[in-house]
Design a protein around this nucleic acid. Structure first.
Lengths: 248, 248
DNA sequence: CGAAGCGTTGAGATAAGTCAATTAGTGTGG
DNA sequence: CCACACTAATTGACTTATCTCAACGCTTCG
């Protein structure tokens, strides 16, 4: 335990691809050691539900790779996606037993999990974790509020453009493959999932994507592969001001 | 209407009406002392803008009395309310210069402000403040996400019912005046502000309120004074499951 | 009184939803 | 290898909830 205790599948925090962005980003070496003691990895398959709304959770954790969604569902089946979890995002809420949302893997995923109780104790001891978690939570709150504007006030076309620009922006920061001005990425969501994110029907999503394609705002290859020839044009369609600082 | 005219002479934290709910709720006596050194009170009039979106903020603080709204506005004027600030709620974001939202007082307000720089230093020292702020931020995030469901998936009638039940619930916890099963409160928002909260037009808000009144879900005296004869009926109209635990 | 702010109500327009048919891609098994 | 089933996505025709535009009523206030 003192030495390099290499677990079967376990990665070393030093090599972790999300080391600098996740909840552990600010940890010192000794704090990382304590985290390593309570961490374990879990794999999920695309489509698998990670946490059911209302269920007791005995862990919290970080998304290492893959994508998950947070959704809320009404009794009659209407569902609203309330968050998209990308690599480095945090799952779970210290200090509360259950999740108010379903958490579902939309792609194959790897999560770095921490047993909840020890994690909470660790949080009380080490300000770096709590501080980073506060920072991340404030960011998520801002994102949620920005999404409220999308849901409450934007047209279907603007909603689609907003979603595409968010995905494009994320992909650009993760994969760093901007060629000139044009962006290329794969949609990680089905039309139905997009509809649930945007508060639309899947038919409307499909129609608006076709319209954006027809108008040359995007190019489609197959159903999922998207090229954005002019990102500022897309932002324009989203109703956001100028380029949002991304091309700077 | 008010029996006690709250003149905000309460400059001592010990007497503070929000002492047990605000960001300072968990503070020990010595921490409170340090807070008192950097705090000051500010009054705002109904309608006054407290912070403009994008402006530099040199303070953070707590709502002591009154109500404020957080709103986002698009270039063409469409606006979406993204939060409602009630007594004990926290304003501002440590670690960031500007607010992404307009913060506007909808009633006369008193705020307990802290100079931002010293507050941030204090936060680094005293885990109780940071911990409480994390807790409050997580609550706000949950509330924002619940609101995303309202904005994305509920009908106009359900939206109105949702808003009324939130206001009713808040009023019940603040004023503790539940008479049997029926709740009475005043709407703190104009029809237009409600529309901005709900992603509707003010005409639709007006029509749906009239409809709920016609159907006996609510009773109206004047434009603002609301009686809810049967709270579970209201929750039913909101599309939420049963009583949400409030009458327990 | 007249103006201004807030709210209600009506009539018609429209964006998005619903229902339904069709296509395309993918995997399965005889 | 071809039918078959199955899912994701597209597209069309029609319906509808909500918006838009407009008129009007009620208070408040100078």
């Amino acid at each position: 335990m003192l030495n390099e205790d290499i677990k079967t599948v376990a990665h070393d925090c030093g090599d972790c691809p999300i080391r600098h962005r996740a909840v552990c980003a600010r940890c010192e070496a000794d704090e990382l050691e304590r985290l390593e003691e309570i961490k374990y990895y879990r794999n999920f398959q695309a489509g698998q539900t990670i946490i059911w709304s209302g269920d007791r959770m005995d862990f919290v954790g970080s998304v290492v790779s893959g994508i998950a969604t947070l959704t809320q569902t009404m009794e009659d089946g209407r569902t609203q996606m309330v968050g998209l979890l990308l690599p480095s995002d945090f799952v779970g809420r210290p200090g509360r037993d259950g999740s108010p949302y379903d958490v579902v893997a939309t792609t194959d995923m790897v999560m770095c999990c921490f047993r909840k109780k020890p994690f909470e104790e660790l949080m009380a001891d080490t300000p770096h974790i709590a501080h980073r978690l506060l920072e991340m939570t404030l960011d998520e709150l801002d994102a949620a509020r920005e999404w409220m504007l999308v849901l409450g006030r934007k047209t279907a076309r603007e909603k689609i453009a907003s979603l595409l620009s968010i995905i494009a922006r994320r992909d650009a920061t993760l994969n760093l493959q901007t060629q000139q001005n044009s962006l290329v990425f794969d949609l990680p969501l089905t039309r139905e999932a997009m509809a649930d994110y945007l508060g639309l029907t899947l038919e409307t999503v499909s129609r608006q994507i076709s319209a954006l394609k027809r108008d040359g705002v995007i190019e489609l290859e197959g159903k999922r592969h998207v090229t954005v020839p002019d990102f500022s044009r897309l932002l324009d369609e989203a109703g956001d001001d100028s380029d949002g600082g991304m091309l700077s």
